[in-house]
Amino acid sequence: MSTLPCHRPPLSAAHRASAQHRQGRFHNAQPRHPMSWQKTLGLLWRFITDKPAEARPRQALPVQAISQADLLAAPDQSLYRLGHSTVLLKLDGRLWLTDPVFSERASPLSWLGPKRFHAPPISIAELPAIAGVILSHDHFDHLDRAAIRQLAPKVEHFITPLGVGQRLIRWGVPAAKVRELDWWQSTQIGGLRLTATPAQHYSGRGLSDGNQTLWASFVLESAESRVFFSGDSGYFDGFRAIGQRFGGFDLSLIETGAYDRDWPDVHMQPHESLQAHLDLGGRVLLPIHNGTFDLGLHDWHEPFERINALASQHDVALSLPQIGERVSILVAQRGGEWWRARLGA
């Protein structure tokens, strides 16, 4: 989502040196299909007239509340889904947070835009110290300005693609806390090695800053596990390249939601999410980017149903935790198909 005027991030030497940066903008490895004005207007018309009846649940989704004590007592290699693409991981005794969005709406406006299906299972105020926040790109459903400002005092490091960190600094995050990475660049924080890897997407928060910042997926390597976090991406051959370079993953957190035939370059259909997991050499698949915001033209529960069926058909180990439920990074926990309790309710 990128709908309002927005300041462009400054062009740094790292931008200019990036193989992804050409003619003032970042680019995918595989060019996106251009979106004509006619197709754009047709898409807007679909959003107005073609929303399914079940685009949003009729009642708030069930959430397992998390306390600070729960997090401090949780064993290593624990994971909690907080909603959408916000995931809390405990690695090497420290907490790591991906794409934290805690606001009521994934929007620059507090009164308009996609509204949450459920409350966060823990507030920012209740969170203990966070070793690092990992940001995949700057869209509003992944980069929540209010959350970043609240988190900044208790977060040691912010790890971002090129340009995204400059936004954080302008918002008041100390520059010493920010580490910007290009694709295939790594940083070491304690016992965790983090590498920004390619993704097939785009960026921007306003009318004039399209693709001024980079987007990325991330690899998290600890002494006990290797985790892949997709951020947002269309399906492309980069997943196979990442899997070959890193030798597979204990867990892959892969977007499975807000997909549609009209934007195949930037979001994956469930069968593509499954194929990306296989390309990566993933052992357990945990689908993200679903169950929190209405950002597509499908029923809110469809991503769960489709990936659940596909995983069964292809004998893929799947974790589908309820929001707030603790699961292991190393063991698949398919869960009790919790979303079905809200179907038609």
Rank of each mutant, 00 (worst) to 15 (best):
R306F: 02
M268N: 05
L220V: 07
D279C: 02
A147E: 07
L61R: 00
F229I: 06
W339E: 01
N211Q: 10
L82E: 03
R149K: 14
P303D: 06
R145H: 12
A129K: 14
S312C: 08
N28T: 05
S222Q: 09
L280A: 01
S230D: 09
I130G: 04
H84S: 11
P5S: 06
A106C: 10
L82P: 04
L168A: 10
V227S: 06
H301Y: 12
G234V: 02
E337R: 14
W45C: 15
I130N: 02
G231M: 08
G238R: 03
A317R: 12
H15Q: 02
A332E: 00
L168T: 13
V266T: 15
R306I: 13
P34E: 09
A317Y: 06
L95K: 06
N211R: 08
D76I: 06
W215N: 14
Q269T: 15
D99V: 11
R340V: 04
S319D: 02
W338K: 03
Q269G: 13
G210L: 15
S312Y: 11
S103A: 12
I122F: 02
K39Y: 01
D294C: 13
P57H: 00
I242L: 01
P270T: 05
F228D: 05
D237C: 07
H201Q: 06
R94E: 15
A74F: 00
G324E: 00
P321E: 03
H118E: 11
A125C: 04
F236P: 00
W339M: 01
G291D: 01
A311R: 03
A53T: 12
I159G: 02
Y235M: 09
S123I: 01
